[in-house]
Design a binder for these strands. Structure first.
Lengths: 229, 229
DNA sequence: TTACTTAGTGTAAAAAATACACGTTATATT
DNA sequence: AATATAACGTGTATTTTTTACACTAAGTAA
């Protein structure tokens, strides 16, 4: 691979927009930067693509280096290419998003000194972000909004066992509006991708709700179908 | 803008996937390349992004240089970043699509020697394409398929005055399936974005159909609404 | 036992989607 | 002028989906 053409003077970066749901709040994964520019600022996990990796591979690597998370399926959604978006040169950023359930399980530990720390931050309570990351995040939010209207993708955000009220909360948080309880349940159950468990919620004050599991086999068959909320 | 960080050794390119409809066939705009690599091959109109232009601006410039077309609204849909997608180095390509009505009006004239010629080619009858352009095109097709299911975007493909049968043809060509005539008309008219004209089709054998115009004001109000076919 | 809080359920009305067939009309041909 | 042709244009009944709406049941905590 030789470079005979001029024009090989861009950098390409990845930014990851990870949405997380902990059972009640919608959060986003941010790092605190340890490098200039924007040292000490909060930012989306992101870094430069290496010469010998595809952008998809790069996204996986960078996420792992900055947050310790691996094997997260992320989907590319936009390339940001304004001339002045990076103060140190011409950097095109390819953005990816994913949706995750949050539990105590996953330790967030940056493996690279590039980030001081990684942390889940409530979407409703964001700090100022480095670069054009607020813009990248906004586009990501729009994306998942459109997304969950058509596919019950929000299951990625839920714990393995969940209540119908939790499912509804996720939808309400992402869509930013209240939904009717009875109609929501009717619809979500009509997809036939939830298995009702014998089990009930534990450790809650007041009446415990029935737990459900997500049936992946049936879910995959849904792919491509049109669904709207 | 100084480059103190290493890693500024990528090129970024644009590829444009323009769909065109001439009243009966779905076409795509290709160029015949006049440069290595892939000299003399058919390819999507595409070239490298310059240092001083955003990717959106670049898409406009490149399309104009290679085909003579200007002021075409194109939407970005994906960044292709496989390591070996370009034989001469690491090139990330940002792909854009647009949908156009075709008439005699627009002359296709490459302004740059990079392309020998530009030509609308029937989608059903494509030559082998340079680079990974077949792949880029396929993704573009998937995109507009999903797209027209939700917004009556296909009007971009139609002439200023068109018949309902033509609208239906566009949908059938893109979706790749037959639709019911009466139901299609009911639905498309229910959006209230078509104005029926006094005028009829001219120059056809057999009965002439009523012509319609597209009401842009009303169309813009539709944006964001969910529509499916 | 009482007070509190969330879980869980049904129905009627309206709107949207689907399936389906034939008379009409402009043109071309003889 | 008559006829054949080919696309135009239209309606209804049925099914499915969406929407609006309010109370009882069950479990916990005081």
């Amino acid at each position: 691979m030789t470079e005979i053409t001029p024009g090989f003077d861009f950098a390409v970066s990845i930014d990851c927009v990870l949405f997380g749901f902990d059972g009640s709040e919608l959060k986003i994964l941010l790092i605190e930067r340890n490098e200039e520019p924007f040292k000490d600022w909060w930012a989306l996990p992101g870094n430069l693509v290496n010469k010998d990796e595809s952008v998809d591979q790069s996204a996986q690597r960078i996420l792992k280096e900055l947050t310790g998370l691996s094997d997260i399926y992320m989907e590319q959604y936009y390339a940001f290419g304004e001339v002045d978006r990076h103060p140190q040169g011409r950097v095109i950023s390819v953005a990816y998003y994913a949706m995750l359930r949050l539990g105590g399980e996953k330790p967030l530990k940056p493996l690279s000194s590039y980030a001081k720390k990684a942390q889940w931050i409530n979407v409703a309570d964001l700090p100022k972000l480095a670069f054009d990351h607020q813009h990248i995040l906004n586009k990501g939010l729009e994306k998942i909004k459109r997304r969950i209207k058509h596919l019950p993708l929000a299951f990625e955000l839920l714990p393995e066992k969940f209540t119908l009220t939790q499912v509804q909360s996720v939808y309400e948080l992402i869509l930013g509006k209240k939904l009717d309880k009875r109609n929501f349940r009717k619809k979500i159950l009509s997809f036939k991708v939830l298995k009702e468990l014998e089990e009930k919620q534990r450790g809650v004050s007041f009446r415990a709700a029935t737990l459900y599991k997500f049936d992946k086999r049936k879910y995959n068959k849904l792919f491509g179908k049109e669904i709207s909320f």
